[in-house]
Amino acid sequence: MSVSGLLTITGLDVRAVHVPMRLPLQTSSGAIHIAPLALIDLHTQEGVTGRTYLFCYTPLVLKPVCAMLNNLAPLLQGMPVAPLEINRALHARFRLLGAKGIVGMALAGLDMAAWDAFARAQAQPLARALGADLLEIRAYNSCGLGLIGADLAPAEAEVLVSAGFSAIKVRLGYPELATDIQVVRAVKAAIGEGVQLMSDYNQGLSVPEAERRVRALADEGLCWIEEPCAAHDYAGYARVRAASTTPIQMGENWWGPSEMAMCLSFGASDLGMPDAMKIGGVTGWMQAATLADAAGMPISTHLFPEVSAHLMAATPTRHWLEFVDWASPILARPLQIRNGHACLSDTPGTGIEWDESAVGRYLVP
């Protein structure tokens, strides 16, 4: 049902859940077995509720993020659901502190929830509210396939492909370069030539070691090499990019479009993959998409596939959607993947609705 005029915010509900991951993920920085999610419900006087979630990486951060969101709730009371104005006002509050870390996560969550409510009020999917059409967005399966070795990786890769995907991602960063190469070759042998393989180092290498490894991986047929070294070292990335014939991917750790612009100025990466949360929610993403379009940079997504699929529809240089099913157990209608593509429905907003019985099982007291 369409609601005329702007909505008025009446309150915010925030809940913390620990959702078990179907395939635990072992990276160079540690193992992830659960998805610590902050669930956000933005309520309005008109009865429309905007929903989203934040992935908090570690349980250590989940409660502080929820606390920050609750601290911001009184500032929202009585505000109209005008996402750009909400974003401007909240960022102004944190001009001296800066909008990174827990603050940035909370602001992005509110932005995504506000845009969801805005689209719902128009009875439009978020993609259409952003001026785009409903598209099928090609996706790669990023669930699992962590640092599990060449003996186990092929079987897990086959599981990921069996869901109908034409691309998957493997994590690298073993102590020895030879193991990286062995794993890549074992996975490619298992999935066949028709499936593309992305790789991710999760910032695990020094710049000199990254230069050495990208050269060694040049003939392995990888779609891209992601975050080989520390994400903030744009000058280092420019060196790695110059040493690589495989495209270098980064961007999930851009805190806002300004950091993306700085990265572009260094020529640090061939490809970009903003994170909907770290880039600043829907508002930050659209700014990032404009930068990418001007630079001719292909843009993929990082996590949050339910929201990111809509953002990709509105992104001129869209490349790949990263699919993870980490929130699926607590969603009433998980994102549908058909033939390796995310299928946007005409459900208003992002389509996020909670499976309340599942939320109750995973609720953090």
Rank of each mutant, 00 (worst) to 15 (best):
A190K: 00
A186E: 02
P228E: 04
Y201F: 15
V184A: 03
V195F: 02
A190D: 01
G236W: 10
V183Y: 01
Y234M: 13
G204K: 06
V187G: 00
Y201E: 13
P228T: 02
R213V: 11
S206R: 11
A231H: 14
G192S: 08
D219S: 15
E220Q: 14
D233W: 14
L217M: 06
L205P: 05
G236T: 05
A216P: 03
A189P: 00
M198V: 02
L205C: 10
A235I: 11
E226Y: 03
Q196C: 10
I225D: 07
R215W: 03
E211F: 05
V195S: 08
R215S: 12
D200T: 15
A216L: 07
G236Y: 11
D233P: 13
G194P: 06
I225E: 07
V195K: 03
A186V: 07
A235G: 09
G194I: 11
E226P: 10
E211H: 08
P208R: 04
E211M: 15
R215C: 09
G192N: 11
G192Y: 08
E209G: 04
A210L: 11
Q196N: 11
A216Q: 12
E227Q: 13
P228V: 02
Q196V: 09
Q203D: 05
G204C: 04
S206H: 13
V214N: 06
E211N: 14
E226H: 03
A230T: 14
W224Q: 06
L205T: 06
E220L: 12
P208Y: 09
W224K: 02
E227I: 13
Q203Y: 00
H232K: 10
R212H: 13
E226V: 12
P208F: 14
R185P: 07
A218E: 12
Q196P: 03
D200C: 09
R212D: 10
G236Q: 09
K188Q: 10
I191H: 01
D200I: 12
D200W: 05
L222G: 05
V187E: 00
S206T: 15
L222A: 01
A186K: 01
L205I: 09
R185E: 14
R213W: 08
V184D: 06
A235C: 06
Q196A: 11
E227N: 01
A189Y: 06
C229E: 03
D219P: 05
Q196S: 10
M198C: 00
H232A: 14
R215E: 14
G204S: 13
E220V: 04
Q203C: 07
A218M: 04
L217N: 05
L217A: 10
Y201H: 14
M198S: 00
A218Y: 07
M198N: 00
P228M: 07
A231G: 12
